[in-house]
Design a protein around this nucleic acid. Sequence first.
DNA 1: ATATATACCATACATTTGTATGGTAATTTA
DNA 2: TAAATTACCATACAAATGTATGGTATATAT
Lengths: 212, 212
Amino acid sequence: MYGIYMNRTITEIQRNILDFIIGEKVDRGIPPTRAEIAAHFGYKNRSTVQQHLKALANKGLIRLSRKISRGIELTLEEKFFIPRPVIGEVAAGNPLTIYPDAIDTVELPSIARMPGDSFLLRVKGDSLKDAFIFSGDIVIVNPNLDPRNGQIVAAVLEDAAVVKRFYRKGDKIELVSENPDYKPIIIERNYSKFKIVGVVIGVYRSMGNKAG
Amino acid sequence: MYGIYMNRTITEIQRNILDFIIGEKVDRGIPPTRAEIAAHFGYKNRSTVQQHLKALANKGLIRLSRKISRGIELTLEEKFFIPRPVIGEVAAGNPLTIYPDAIDTVELPSIARMPGDSFLLRVKGDSLKDAFIFSGDIVIVNPNLDPRNGQIVAAVLEDAAVVKRFYRKGDKIELVSENPDYKPIIIERNYSKFKIVGVVIGVYRSMGNKAG
DNA sequence: ATATATACCATACATTTGTATGGTAATTTA
DNA sequence: TAAATTACCATACAAATGTATGGTATATAT
């Protein structure tokens, strides 16, 4: 509509720079300066970076606030959604296999700033429906927390992953579904093929276009 | 107003500066510089700001990255949660009044980066429970979208706010609860005290400590 | 009474930062 | 073939930035 035709394809170098900017925003909380980008990629001056940034801006992927340090805004998906890898699907009902690589990406709101080592899992199954977690929801898992009784955790059990409520009972660990259709999983103390992956600290559900 | 002297508590001025930093991070995506803070509060130089920042850093509320522009890190809640104002409570059941100021803050994951003009509402009531939105959930409202039939919207009706499913039927707009206990609200075409606030694009629920 | 925290001001300075201009070279597009 | 685009380089500069020092004044704590 507006005379300028936007070429949306970006080069590999531009892609790498964009990824670096996103990574810095996510991990450090602030976008990088030209100098920081140049240092990261080994450029000897900032002009090279500036040209790549202008290219990215022309293609509509970022917006540069003039004269503002670190003034790089992401315009991905109308500035609102950022693709995040979903590293696996996790059974709220019966265990499902975790895939070695990310199975998918989900468009989390740019709200969805993940801290360094947290990750996302998509829930399959309905065993947690009484905890208001449903099939298709994205759970945010923090691997740095020790689970307390009653919290919902993600755990790996024989190369499969589950999301269930956690209870420690003496020597044993009990993983309980909220849904009475599923029986608790009881893990003995010295069972080796079991590992708590992290604590579910949040649930996100996109309301997309679908009705409900 | 000069408060009670206490080493660990922060003063009102420090609180205001902290709020401004959080707001800038949330709204603009980047923390402010000393100069920007000074301009906002009417200080004539940056040294005043620097002293307040040092006070905040001494009290553990922020961390200052030396020589890094905009290098203000929030250390709230282990860097993971950021308080966001909840501008009102919204009835999924019957309308509730919107308060002139933020009624509360909710600790969204720092994941929770909101775009400039989107906002959060906490849902009260159970009229949307069949859409899996429950009392206490935080809905993310994008005011820049035009609602389509079947989408869940936030609307203001005579100074109260509701979250309901939207249907346009000829001249009328129908706001439907998922829960059959509540009757649809029907708005005539030229009814002036009605306004669509935005489309609910996501739901976030923190899993806190509680077992629920 | 003395030390400390708060709350502003002014001045100063070495770096950093965004930005511009101009150059070389390879590649892609029209 | 000509014109862009991409991908680097070097140099330059005004403005912005973090930071420090020192001053004045008030309020609080020991």
